[in-house]
Design a protein around this nucleic acid. Structure first.
Length: 563
RNA sequence: GCGCCCGUAGCUCAGUUGGAUAGAGUGCUUGCCUCCGAAGCAAGAGGUCACAGGUUCGAAUCCUGUCGGGCGCACCA
């Protein structure tokens, strides 16, 4: 596809005197008008002519010199129509030649992108809210990987803070009433809630918690640290089961505790930049009128979240000299990241713009905001299980002979949940509605998986029948324009999705491709045609299957051959 | 109160970074399984792009204001 836009751009540049990069080539609103379009408004001022006149003149000149591309003026637009057989052979050829690499590029060669994703808290359950950071971050990482970036996915575990003093105190008192070893997360949640309930009557609890955390901060290798370490390990092991189901891995798993030794030097570094001051007994960086100051050290001398994040970002810069450092964190923390960046800016660090908060909308329940304290949460594990069970039910009904039904139900169910989370623009809030999450029809992951399975099935049948050999007759792809153009757009979609850190660009594109493919093959039979016709259509089927599978893979959704 | 984000079909969302007659899914009403998998396809109805101004050849898109919703606002993370 790129070759067509390139040659059109080059020809336009020759005739208009504008630089090729300035010429915006877009798609016509109505596909019947052409494959590509150039609006002539930009030239009107310079040439002092009406856009329709410019379009007519350009069309005449370009038609003559572009091989295989017809240029027609429609009002103020020049519309380009690529010769059908050429379009088909070029795009299908590109896809099949590049195979699983189609859409990949070397855009990011030699550049590193650090991605902070998932980042659950020890002692709290992984809710459907954490799902967002995990699947959005992982999709962004895969999309950037495909463009040649070196990516470093970091799971920044919340394993520090006063709540661990509370947790250790609670386990010490009531640990034997719950199953900490076997069902860690639920047990710790129960203890945490109990701690807060009983602390209202018993002030010694808060005192104990504070002593515990102080011991932890001192770095003392005693009972508290031992207990903290054990709870962390048990929780992480439980989280790992979910990461396995989501097929998400990390290059680094680091708790906030990792940065403890760096906190002192971090504060010294900020002090050395001359931007710190004391205010109400706390050490702060003043950030002007626009936002509250950033607190580095509380009046009792201990550090805060922001201090640890600053330590982490310095550490990451020194380790990687990243091109971008992406924080896939909910939009409720926007102010925090604005402050973080403002501190870096005040320090005069040139790399500050490379730090980006990739914010995403909040997951809300119909009855209100989620709250683990009020028991108003949906556990991710339950969601995945329910979706898997629902998928299995449908498989038993629609495809009872399917081998490995359980394994495929897992792929479909988890795929539905993941895809649903990546479907809309990430900044938008989501209301969690069960019926939407376990829906497998329309704009859903299973719809894309189904399309993939159908295409795979046609390919299988062709191999069994020994069809598809011989020279393709590319004119047999008439009516497949929508599929071809969608396939041709894929590399651009990936680039844009990476640039914007926006996986939804890939989901909505792949749904569009699937819609085109489904429409096409219900009207154009592949098998049992003239050999040239079957060969061409089969090649398109294979190209579409590969690309859909590839796109789903980047999103973290499995693409089964049968379902 | 202040700041940031969101507002497009009954509902959930796209809308090619300012371009042509605003599109999907879902729900509703229909039609299609002797024909490569009906988790599918096709058709119909459904819109003052929250509202009011402004910027220009052109605005759902940019600016200002209003309304509605979400999130946040120094010693939690």
């Amino acid at each position: 596809m790129q070759q067509f836009t390139d040659s059109i751009r080059a020809a336009l540049a020759r005739h208009t005197g504008l630089a090729a990069e300035e010429l915006k080539i877009e798609s016509p609103r109505d596909a019947s008008m052409g494959d590509l379009a150039f609006p002539c408004f930009v030239l009107a001022k310079a040439l002092k002519q009406a856009p329709p006149k410019i379009a007519a003149e350009l069309a005449a000149k370009l038609s003559a010199e572009l091989e295989g591309i017809e240029a027609v003026a429609t009002g103020p637009y020049v519309n380009f129509r690529i010769e059908r057989a050429l379009l088909g052979s070029t795009i299908v050829g590109d896809v099949l030649r590049q195979g699983a690499d189609y859409g990949a590029s070397a855009l990011g060669a030699g550049k590193t992108v650090v991605i902070d994703l998932s980042s659950p808290n020890i002692g709290k359950p992984m809710s459907v809210g954490h799902l967002r950071s995990t699947v959005i971050g992982a999709a962004i990482q895969r999309i950037l990987d495909a463009q040649g970036y070196r990516t470093v996915g970091i799971n920044h575990i919340g394993d520090w803070g006063i709540q661990f003093g509370k947790l250790v105190a609670a386990v010490d008192r009531w640990g034997d009433t719950v199953d900490v070893e076997g069902d860690t997360v639920r047990a710790l949640l129960e203890l945490y809630v109990r701690f807060h309930d009983e602390a209202e009557q018993d002030p010694t609890l808060e005192e104990q918690a504070a002593r515990n955390f102080q011991e932890l901060e001192r770095g003392e290798e005693g009972h508290v640290r031992e207990s903290w370490r054990r709870l962390t390990e048990l929780t992480l092991a439980e989280f790992q089961k979910i990461y396995d189901r989501l097929h998400v891995g990390f290059d680094q798993i680091r708790g906030e505790a990792y940065y403890e030794p760096y906190l002192g030097p971090t504060i010294e570094r900020i002090e050395a930049a001359g931007v710190t001051e004391m205010s109400e007994g706390a050490e702060i960086v003043d950030l002007g009128e626009d936002m509250p100051p950033c607190l580095l050290r509380k009046s009792d001398g201990t550090t805060l979240y922001a201090t640890r994040d600053l330590a982490a970002v310095f550490h990451r810069w020194e380790q990687f000299e990243f091109e971008r450092c992406l924080y896939v964190v909910g939009s409720d923390q926007k102010l925090h990241f604005r402050q973080l960046k403002a501190v870096l800016a005040r320090m005069g660090l040139a790399w500050e713009p490379r730090v980006e908060h990739v914010a995403f909308g909040m997951m809300r329940l119909p009855e209100g905001k989620m709250s683990s304290r009020k028991g108003r949460v949906v556990f991710l594990e339950d969601v995945l299980d329910t979706a898997r069970d629902e998928a299995l039910k449908i498989i038993r009904e629609k495809n009872p002979e399917l081998a490995n039904a359980e394994a495929i139900a897992e792929q479909v169910g988890v795929g539905a949940v993941v895809f649903n989370d990546l479907k809309r623009e990430r900044i938008k809030d989501i209301e969690f509605v069960w019926s939407e999450v376990v829906s497998f029809e329309g704009d859903t992951g299973p719809y894309a998986q189904y399309t993939h399975a159908r295409l795979a099935s046609i390919g299988r049948k062709a191999r069994e029948a020994g069809e598809g050999a011989g020279a393709p007759d590319w004119t047999a792809l008439e009516g497949a324009d929508g599929v071809l153009l969608a396939l041709g757009r894929f590399p651009d979609v990936l680039r844009s999705a990476g640039e914007h850190a926006e996986p939804s660009e890939v989901t909505s594109w792949v749904l569009g491709l699937c819609r085109e493919v489904n429409g096409w093959y219900t009207n154009h039979r592949v098998l049992g045609q003239e050999p040239g016709v079957t060969a061409a259509r089969l090649a398109l089927v294979e190209a579409a299957r590969l690309t859909i599978g590839r796109a789903l893979g980047l999103l973290g959704v499995a693409a089964p051959e049968e379902m």
